[in-house]
């Protein structure tokens, strides 16, 4: 890991105007990603993890917009680039793998063609068809699609779910991006296929040094795959640290809640403990800690002001006043 981050989010805020008011789907998120790093972003549905990814690529659909912050890629703020310059980055430097492979592949075009499009857009093979096709077949076998020459002309509906996800990964890898944003890449797949896909992503990371951001609601999956984990709640990051720090010594009550509600197969019978209460309405997040209402250790002061991050160990940041004795970051 080098010291200058490959990607750095600074106070990124993305909002969606709704009838109920302004929804801050991503609120003040700061995060960095080093070259070749495996970073996990964990949180429950609707906590803003996917919107964070889409914000990096500036793919927020209207009326949503990025209201504040910076997204520095190799020092350049992506949010300030022209549309044309941004298109140069999308797919080439930063690629994305989406959640539901069947709906993400275009039903009207053959899979091979859709992979080839990535090459063509970024002129990877000088727009030379035979060379592009050769590269696509290479990519298809690299991600584990068997008999790629035959499957080049097949349509998405002729692929199984696992193969569709592999095809999506091939699309993302086509231009050898520096960062792969994987948004719940295995959620719609069964467990064996899930393991294969995660294995594939790990190999890509090792072979090419591609940094991967894994967005998932599955803390176990993130723990197994990532070097660092960021936990998100109601649009805010609440805890960031190395996987060991977050999993072994979770400091935020929300992280601990997430860890106790994962079922485990072990000799000991332990009860799964759900976190009481509901996620606050994002259009109306209470001041102070967003988790306060559900927190067993809540103190009156928690609901007053926005809680800053406290660094409790090198690289381990927690947004919780129980650590106010530590230095605010």
């Amino acid at each position: 890991m080098t010291n200058t981050p490959l990607l750095e989010l600074k106070n990124l805020t993305t909002v969606f105007p709704t009838r109920r008011g302004l929804v801050r789907a991503v609120a003040d998120v700061s995060l960095s990603l080093a070259q070749g790093e495996l970073l996990g972003i964990v949180g429950e549905s609707g906590c803003g993890k996917s919107v964070t990814m889409l914000s990096i690529l500036r793919l927020i659909s209207t009326p949503g917009r990025i209201a504040a912050g910076q997204a520095l890629f190799q020092g350049r703020d992506l949010l300030k680039l022209s549309d044309g310059a941004m298109r140069q980055i999308r797919g080439k430097d930063i690629a994305m793998v989406f959640q539901d492979p069947l709906s993400t592949l275009n039903p009207a075009f053959p899979v091979g063609e859709q992979i080839r499009e990535s090459l063509r857009i970024h002129h990877i093979a000088q727009n030379h068809f035979a060379r592009e096709k050769e590269r696509v077949i290479e990519l298809m076998s690299e991600v584990g699609i068997s008999s790629p020459t035959d499957r080049f002309h097949e349509y998405p509906h002729q692929f199984s779910g696992g193969m569709q996800q592999r095809a999506l990964i091939a699309i993302a890898l086509a231009c050898e991006p520096k960062i792969l944003l994987a948004d719940e890449p295995t959620t719609s797949l069964d467990v064996t296929i899930q393991a294969q896909i995660m294995d594939l992503m790990r190999r890509i990371n090792e072979a090419r040094g591609t940094a991967i951001v894994l967005v998932t609601h599955n803390l176990d999956l993130a723990a197994e795959f990532c070097q660092r984990i960021a936990v998100m709640y109601a649009g805010r990051l609440v805890e960031i640290g190395t996987t060991d720090q977050v999993i072994e010594t979770p400091q935020h009550p929300y992280t601990r809640g997430l860890l106790t509600c994962i079922p485990r197969i072990s000799a000991q019978r332990t009860r799964i403990e759900p976190i009481p209460g509901n996620v606050p309405d994002l259009a109306n997040v209470p001041p102070g800690c967003a988790f306060a209402e559900r927190c067993s250790e809540m103190q009156p002061i928690c609901q007053n002001d926005l809680i800053p991050f406290f660094e409790i160990a090198p690289g381990h940041l927690v947004r919780c006043l129980r650590h106010s004795s530590a230095t605010p970051d």
């Binding site: 889409l54 980055i89 999308r90 690629a95 989406f98 709906s103 999506l168 699309i171």
Partner: peptide
């Protein structure tokens, strides 16, 4: 235009 594959096309860098 709201579909996932249109989002993917944009994420690829298509015009």
């Amino acid at each position: 235009l709201r579909s996932d594959y249109v989002k993917l096309a944009r994420a690829k860098g298509a015009t």
